[in-house]
Simulated assay, not measured.
Amino acid sequence: MDAARDPLSESIDGAVPEGDGLHRVRLRDGRTAFLKQRRDRPATLLQAEARGLRLLRSAGGVRVPDIYAEYPHALLLEDLGEGMPTEDFQARAAHGLARQHLVVSSHFGLEHDGWCGDSPQDNTVDTDGHHFFATHRLQPQALRAHRSGYIDDADHARVQRLCERLPEFIPRYSPSLLHGDLWSGNLHCCSNGEPALIDAGAAHYGWAEADLAMLTLFGDPGPRFFAQYAEHAALASDWRERAPLYNLYHLLNHLNLFGRGYLGAVRSVLRRFVGAA
């Protein structure tokens, strides 16, 4: 791109990095920042990221990076640095996440669609959480996996049966403000040891337990974290029994994004809740 016509060049001190991804850059005012570029995806991906960051910030919970500037395929974000967790890192993260989840809505979803990783996420609003999770989370991912040949007819049918039975497994919770893609890597440790939430393109209103469940999918912050969370927000004693249901959405998404290595985990959840094919 011609730097003279690139608005990024007006903010960055030096050449604009060419590749997609995250780049630490220096701004003309002397600050460092992260440039997040995704020219390989629609502009809606980073638009969803910016909206999600602002929404999470409004909750007054866990810290999120400031947005310095927005462009169609790039964001300039506050450089939070990376450090070692302070002694109270988990408590601050747990209490902040609980405060965020206390922000509730009259509907599930969001006024704008989002992205979960590199997958578009349909946030069409719905007053019924079970219908929302089935129609706008599990079924689109299962259909995509079926069309790609990652799951067979029997797997697809079991996802449909599970969707019909969701009210048997998940209570009728109110919709809370979620990060939406809260694996351990998106709970960032800043240079000062403070927790922060990053990569917020999947933010929406949904079941609070779904955020907690994903924190256990690729690692687990441990029982103390969840006990500290429960000091500030309601947490059912049996929430972990439902965690695989919430995580099925992310397992299907990973199956679609990264391939058959996730098929066993998907089938394990289906066997647990609706039996063998």
Rank of each mutant, 00 (worst) to 15 (best):
L252I: 14
Q100L: 14
S105R: 05
E164G: 11
L187M: 08
D2E: 07
A4T: 14
A203W: 05
A227C: 03
Y262F: 15
H112E: 15
W115H: 06
R260D: 15
A234N: 13
P221G: 02
P120V: 00
L56A: 03
E168F: 08
G259D: 04
P85W: 06
N123G: 11
Y249D: 11
W115G: 01
A69W: 02
G275R: 05
A233H: 06
A210K: 08
Y229H: 03
E49G: 08
H112C: 09
P167I: 03
D2G: 09
R260G: 09
D6M: 12
R158P: 08
L263K: 14
A94V: 00
G81N: 13
L182V: 03
S148K: 14
P72F: 07
V16S: 08
C190V: 06
R41K: 12
G259I: 08
F273N: 00
K36P: 02
T127W: 07
A210R: 02
V16E: 09
V159N: 00
Q228F: 13
P65D: 02
Q160Y: 05
V25T: 03
Q160P: 05
A213T: 02
F258D: 10
R92E: 10
L8F: 13
H232E: 15
G19R: 14
V269L: 13
V266M: 12
L77P: 04
H254M: 08
Y205G: 01
G206A: 07
Q37K: 15
E241G: 07
A277R: 13
E18A: 15
R224P: 07
D155N: 07
V104L: 11
L255F: 13
W239E: 01
A50E: 05
H146A: 15
L143D: 15
G264R: 15
R5H: 14
Y150C: 09
R92V: 04
L46Q: 01
H131Y: 05
A265S: 15
Q141K: 01
F89C: 04
P17H: 11
Y246D: 01
D113I: 10
A98W: 05
R92D: 12
A15E: 13
Y68A: 13
P223S: 11
G30W: 14
V64D: 00
G117K: 10
K36V: 00
